[in-house]
């Protein structure tokens, strides 16, 4: 039985590994960090949209399925430094603290995922300059009872609970100025979810969402959007957050209320940037090491977007999940299973 190399221990990689192991294949799962679960674990995602169920309820079963399966060898703190050979016999060098070893694999699954967009680049938003301008990933960490603030939303500047909160949509997405003209596909629903969580925990707070379009195309997303407006009185303003300044220790934002056709200035206590998705560092490294094609934004390019979505530009190397482009957790799990089926099929031939 041939062994499959899965690169990346996030949701997609975990799902692919456990599906392949269940089919009887041996799997080596290589993860560069010392934990499994990728961005979900790293940023302590608390609840998932649209059901507001705990992220742990989704991610722990996926991790457990990997850890409890004897067909899977999990290599944490490890990285692939070189790959030679071709399908169905690849030789991969795996480097970790114990040194470097070479192993043979029948197929490779790349599930290296995304990184949260770094909003420091959008200097007009003041991220990094103003303490109370935070990212949506940081808010996830705050809202998680196991996070740094034990589940409380606190202003980094003074530790107080903010009363007026503005959320900026499309930070690092749909933006040619930063080279990311694509949509992050999750920002709208994540912000709506976070706004509801904040209002639920602090009913006295005011939450404003500055958006261009609310793209609620996923299962139950539109309903969540409706709930946010009807049950939680979250205020959605159609205009992109344009600029943040600090006036007398108070954050002040500028935008245009495009429906009312007027520029506005708004003083708030905290600003959450709905930072989008960028190709992960691991994805860019993997593309280099494996010599597979990337698209204009650094994500991995499928052989054919419609007909072979999980095949890379090289035979025997498969791609899945958010390393192909922005994707939510629900679809990453589907991708993990889909790529497993494709790998199994290719190894049978």
């Amino acid at each position: 039985m041939k062994t499959v190399l899965v690169i990346g221990g996030g949701v997609t990689g975990l799902k692919a590994a456990s599906e392949l192991a269940e089919m009887g294949y041996n799997v080596s799962l290589v993860e560069k960090e010392d934990y499994l679960g990728g961005q979900v674990t790293k940023h302590k995602y608390y609840k998932l949209a649209p059901d507001l169920r705990l992220a742990g309820d989704v991610i722990y079963p996926v991790i457990k399925a990997v850890e409890s399966n004897s067909n899977i060898k999990v290599l944490k703190h490890s990285q692939i430094t070189a790959v030679s050979g071709a399908a169905p016999e690849f030789k991969a060098k795996i480097k970790n603290s114990k040194g470097e070893s070479e192993e043979t694999f029948g197929a490779i699954v790349v599930a290296t995922g995304f990184d949260h967009f770094d909003p420091t680049v959008k200097q007009e938003y003041g991220y990094g300059r103003f303490k109370d301008v935070v990212t949506n990933a940081e808010v996830e960490e705050m809202l998680n009872p196991n996070g740094p603030t034990k589940g409380e939303l606190k202003r980094p500047s003074d530790g107080k609970t903010p009363k007026k909160i503005a959320i900026f949509q499309c930070v690092g997405s749909r933006d040619r100025q930063v080279g990311n003209p694509y949509c992050c596909r999750v920002g709208c629903v994540v912000s709506t979810k976070q706004a509801i969580e904040i209002k639920e925990k602090y009913p006295d707070s005011e939450v404003y969402v500055y958006y261009m379009d609310m793209r609620m195309f996923g299962r139950g997303w539109e309903e969540l959007y409706g709930k946010a407006m009807e049950d939680y009185e979250i205020i959605f303003t159609r205009g992109r957050g344009a600029e943040v300044t600090l006036k007398n220790q108070q954050l002040s934002l500028r935008a245009e209320e495009t429906i009312m056709d007027r520029p506005i200035q708004h003083s708030v206590d905290m600003i959450i940037l709905a930072a989008g998705m960028a190709a992960g560092e691991g994805t860019i490294d993997a593309a280099k090491v494996l010599g597979i094609k990337q698209n204009d934004y650094g994500f991995l390019a499928p052989k054919d977007d419609f007909l072979s979505p999980n095949e890379s530009s090289k035979p025997g190397i498969f791609i899945a999940g958010a390393d192909k482009g922005p994707m939510d957790i629900e679809n990453c799990i589907v991708e993990g299973a889909a790529v497993a089926a494709k790998v199994a099929g290719s190894l049978k031939n």
């Binding site: 261009m212 159609r238 992109r240 344009a242 600029e243 500028r254 245009e256 520029p263």
Partner: peptide, 13 residues
């Protein structure tokens, strides 16, 4: 995109 970024930043507006 009709996002209004230009108007928000425009000193004339």
């Amino acid at each position: 995109l009709n996002c209004g970024t230009c108007v928000a930043n425009c000193p004339a507006a």
